[in-house]
């Protein structure tokens, strides 16, 4: 288990991998597994829109 850094909800992670992106089911925040032992989460990279090719 890990804790959402935004809302504090518990997030179940079966086999967390470093770099994995997970969603908090409570608040919808996208989180990144930054270390897998012990498990630590950070905000995932942000999404941006770009009008080009």
């Amino acid at each position: 288990m890990a804790e959402c850094i935004e809302c504090g909800a518990q997030i179940a992670l079966s086999k967390p991998e470093k770099g994995e992106i997970v969603d908090c089911l409570e608040c919808g925040t996208e989180l990144e597994v930054v270390t897998d032992n012990p498990i630590a989460l950070a905000l995932a990279p942000q999404e941006e829109e770009d009008w080009g090719e």
């Binding site: 770099g19 990144e32 990279p45 942000q46 999404e47 941006e48 829109e49 770009d50 009008w51 080009g52 090719e53």
Partner: peptide
Amino acid sequence: VSAIREADGSPTYKKKLGTS
């Protein structure tokens, strides 16, 4: 994402409005 961080960048994902 990992390689951009290694190069001292702060990675972002882009979603493009064009096609390629």
